[in-house]
Each structure stands twice: as structure tokens, then as C-alpha cells.
Computed example of a mutant assay.
Amino acid sequence: MPAFSTDDVLGNRLDFEIARDGFVRELRDAAVLRNAETWLRREGYRVVEMDAGAWGDDEQMHLDFAKGLQFPPHFGQNLDALDDCMSDVAEADYGWDASETGLVLVLSGFDRFARRLPRTADHVQHILRRQGRYAALFGNRLLTILA
């Protein structure tokens, strides 16, 4: 089952626009972000918000992902483990339920995190893009908004 249909293309749907552009999208305007979150929830998405701006180090980032997406206790708290766990999330093993339309991660203050830890932020974005594509192979929707 495809993650999207031609009706989604013609309908100018926000979720399709995010997926089409690589599964990760920046939305910096607060009003636009609020409207997007409202629309996504109304469409049946689980929206998980994380305050990336508060991440002072890799450990805080890993802990936030683990808590927000219910990673298993054996999560290794490194970028390889994050990628592994996000592939499980993409398959809807945990973090959300496949009966929902999809999962949207909203990482607020991501630009502040990226200034503090640019290399880690780049890896995280790469993981989220790759896992968004991976989810689509199963007909799942895993989208990320960088706010």
C-alpha cells in the first residue's frame, strides 16, 4: 500500500508536501507551525513535540527521543542506536500506532541545537530523512518538522 495517492498530490496536502520535499521540513513561523500541527492532528497524525533548543549535548537529545518515542530500555544512546530505533519507529513497532495516519516529529528550536552541535544535528536530520523514506516503503508516514 503506498503512503500517498494521486489525490494527495492534487489536494495540496501539507503531509504530502513534507514527504515530497524529503520527509523533513522547516517551519519557523509560530502561527504557521500551530496551524500545521492542528491540521496534522485533525488528519489523524500522532504529533510528538521535542524541545531541541534545550538539548545542550547528545545525551539530552537521545533521552528526549527515547522518552518521546518509547524506545526500548536497551537503547544505546548513540547515533547508530538512534538510527536503529528510528527504523523500528518507521515500521510502527513503537512510538506510534500504524492505525494512526502517521507520526510527525516537531523539533522546536532545532536551529539553536544545530548551532551548538552542528555535526550531531546534521546526522539527526540525515537519520530522519532516511527513516522517513524507509517508513514510506511500508506505506507508513514518518514526517519531521524543524521549528
Score class of each variant (00 low, 15 high):
V124E: 01
W55N: 02
Q131G: 00
A135Y: 07
N140C: 06
D84S: 12
C85S: 09
L107D: 05
F4M: 06
R46Y: 05
G132Q: 07
D88W: 00
A136D: 09
R20A: 14
R20C: 02
F75I: 04
Q125F: 00
H126C: 09
L27S: 03
G132L: 08
W96G: 00
E91D: 14
R41A: 15
A19C: 07
P118W: 08
P2A: 14
I18S: 06
V124G: 04
G102I: 06
G53P: 09
T6A: 12
N12E: 12
A52S: 07
Y134C: 00
D51C: 04
N12D: 14
R28F: 03
G11C: 08
E100V: 02
L40P: 06
K67V: 04
S5F: 09
R116P: 01
N140I: 01
Y45N: 08
N140G: 07
V9D: 05
E91N: 11
Q77K: 15
M50A: 12
A30T: 12
L103I: 07
E17P: 00
E26P: 02
V47D: 08
R129K: 14
E91W: 04
G102A: 09
G68K: 10
M86Q: 09
F75H: 10
G139D: 10
L143P: 05
I18T: 09
A66N: 03
L40E: 09
V24F: 06
G76Y: 04
A90G: 13
L107T: 07
R133T: 10
Q60Y: 02
T6D: 12
A114I: 01
G139Y: 08
Y45V: 08
H126R: 15
M1T: 13
F65A: 03
F4Q: 04
E91L: 14
A98W: 11
D83V: 00
R46Q: 13
H126P: 00
G139N: 10
A30M: 04
V32Y: 04
N35T: 09
M86A: 07
N78L: 01
V106Y: 04
D93Q: 12
W55H: 07
N78C: 07
R42C: 03
A121W: 03
W96S: 00
V24C: 14
E100R: 13
F138S: 11
Q77A: 11
D15P: 03
A98N: 09
R20Q: 13
R41E: 15
A90K: 02
A92I: 02
L128I: 05
P72M: 05
N140M: 07
V106R: 07
V32T: 14
N78T: 02
L14F: 11
L33M: 12
G11N: 14
A147F: 00
T101N: 12
L143R: 06
N12M: 11
A121M: 09
D122K: 14
L107M: 15
A54G: 15
R46N: 03
E49V: 10
L142T: 06
D80R: 05
L82V: 05
V9A: 11
R133M: 13
